[in-house]
Amino acid sequence: MGEYTITILIFIAIQAIVSCGLNVIVGYAGQISLGHAAFFGIGAYASALLTTRAGLTFWAALPLVVLITASIGMVLGMPSLRLREDFLAVTTIGINFIVESVFLYVPFFGGALGIGGIPSVYLFGTRLKGVLFLYMCLAFLAATLAISWRFTRSWAGLACFALREEETAASSAGVSPVRFKLTAFVIGTAMAGLGGALYAHQMRFISATDFGFPLSIMMMSMVVLGGIGTLWGPVLGALILGALPEIFRPLVDYRMLLNAAVLLMMIRFQPEGLLGEGGLLRRILPGRGGEGRG
């Protein structure tokens, strides 16, 4: 594998982790979020600051990064307790813009210059770069998938599915909407925080514009393309949308056009996603992807 290919695969793995987090919120708990890049950014900035200014290693910072992102995720998830569907979508877009502006305009976060000099990741004295960094990302992706799978099999998962399907019926069956919507936001944003930390240490330089609204749309596209609410959907979506621009490199000027065309075709012909109910790949791969009960 060339270095270039490895770099592409690292980004795909990171986006798959973050999309899995979005899938917990949108797919499992049914809460529309169009601001997921904000939490990806919070994870990246938290890790960057803790490693550059507080002098922690990547590994020492990581638990804090996940904790910080998930705590902010819980607070910013609160609008979902009052707002439904399109109102929630607009609010989460707003959250994305606010978080991006804070990174951009508050000097503590480096302003427009962003944060540079983010240290590499070392494990047992070995510097993880190139293919080693890729392996680490894949290990984290595997852990993320394991947690997602475990979640779908838990009571909390069942409670989230019930809320997604029929909120009033779920609450009259004893399921607390507050507790489980926030649980989904905590788990989903924790995954985004993990992805953000990996991103920061791969790039070694980050700035606010890396975490804007278009990235949130891209993440949502990955989840929708792969199959919303399925286990493997976000991974498939990240793989396709991450690889397409490389495959169609000669058509680089038309990249956004192609992305839009793919999404429109999906909405028209595969609304549940490739791995979702009645999806193209679901039919080819019997038994696959059904774990998530899309």
């Binding site: 409670a159 599915f161 029929e166 779920a170 399921v175």
Partner: peptide, 18 residues
């Protein structure tokens, strides 16, 4: 108001939550 995309068994199970 059953939960349409859950199985019959899972629907019943939600009633036994906690």
């Amino acid at each position: 108001r059953v939960f349409p995309r859950l199985t019959v068994y899972e629907n019943i199970l939600t009633g036994a939550y906690r």
